[in-house]
Nucleic acid binder design. Sequence first.
DNA 1: TGACGTCTGTGCGCTACCACACATATAGGG
DNA 2: CCCTATATGTGTGGTAGCGCACAGACGTCA
Lengths: 248, 248
Amino acid sequence: MQMPLLKNHSVVPANRILATLPKKEYQRLLRSMEEIPLLFEKILYKPGGLILDVYFPTSGIVSLLAAVEDRATLEVGLVGREGMVGLPVFMEVKTSRNLAVVQGAGSALRMKAKIFAKECQDGGSLPRMLRRYSHSLLTQISQTAVCNRFHPIDARLARWLLMTRDRMGSDEFQLTQEFLSNMLGVRREGVNKAAGTLQQKQLINYSRGTLTILNGTGLEAIACNCYGIIREEYDALLPEKARVKTLH
Amino acid sequence: MQMPLLKNHSVVPANRILATLPKKEYQRLLRSMEEIPLLFEKILYKPGGLILDVYFPTSGIVSLLAAVEDRATLEVGLVGREGMVGLPVFMEVKTSRNLAVVQGAGSALRMKAKIFAKECQDGGSLPRMLRRYSHSLLTQISQTAVCNRFHPIDARLARWLLMTRDRMGSDEFQLTQEFLSNMLGVRREGVNKAAGTLQQKQLINYSRGTLTILNGTGLEAIACNCYGIIREEYDALLPEKARVKTLH
DNA sequence: TGACGTCTGTGCGCTACCACACATATAGGG
DNA sequence: CCCTATATGTGTGGTAGCGCACAGACGTCA
């Protein structure tokens, strides 16, 4: 096709932010992007470090973690193909206090932070979309904060699994209890117990690192409506169907 | 002076976002603004409701609260003269899930949301500043989330008091335990106990609704470094001194 | 096959915080 | 002045989740 660097992202970009851009703008951006694999546990940027590249996931999922003094962590953001990693660059900040780490393998379009920053300056559709995305991320973070404060571990685990499923498009993922404990900001033993509860209710199957969602609607019942709220925000923000149609 | 509508905000605007704008841009904005008092407990916008106006506080302080099903609330943002109320409008969203309520009386410059949205579209300094502010708010929310998850009530109370002091520029405020419990997302009795602890250590004086900070550095010692992190983010973002100098 | 490292399950005491229930202080209006 | 609203102080359980301490399960590599 007309793409100089990329072949497979011909017409409809898999990343939902890019998908909403006018064809022309999207194609211009593509020239500065390259597709890279998101390898499991790869660190995209570290707390305090410079953000050199930004990423638009096309599949897979990236966690934004906040670290607290005594090496405990808490997930403050979850980015899939609906979003972008490196939002601080958009906000004119070159560094982040968070850790961005690949939590589910996939691939992404990568772009140099400097070029990206330049693209954001002239008022095209991209900065507009990014502002809207910022809002939904903000909502996600706020709601997660509320959830972590008020709801029991079971509910939070259920919420987290549903959010991950939405972004991964799969009912099965690899993850250890240790890992989940870092996401939810609880002890591993707490994860164990909560997972046991969900398993007893036949909602999930979890053995030795592979977790399968058996009953999504059942999970939604256990999960607080925090999940629903976060979900709504994303859906409202990105009218995917409509956009995809115009691009076809 | 040259201001048609406002008199006292002659040269150096008290709001720090406005203070960073080029004189010309600031003066144009002023024409669409009016100064209003921020009355204690006034609600600027409600969850789910439209945001009709945005506010740039010049003094006083506004809380952004997230409500959870069973009428418990949690503060997810604190806005003083360093910020702006109504950020969702900047992000192309007309409504918010939060409650914005005046927590310390003062005054603000008010602007119609529609006009404001228009001002943000063409790439002046305003949207640039707002993006930077968004980042610091994002950091504030994330860090508060971490704090609420991991730290005991005493520390969180100390952090909250320090943040409030910074924004109010005063060591004494009026607030009930009930109110604080809504901010910190804990029971009133918990606030009582934590306040008792701080009082015993001679860090604050709290009796019947008026709270006085006696020993700020002592409070900082009790508070987690979450306070320091949030503070740094604000300071880094808004080089007030430098800007004020150029405007003089 | 065994030895070792990494995950997983589980139990026990402890603490912070919650839920509820009062007793008291204070302000402000009749 | 009293009377009542509202704010404050305190006590008594209950419980979720923590810290610690192991015991089994499983993979892997020699």
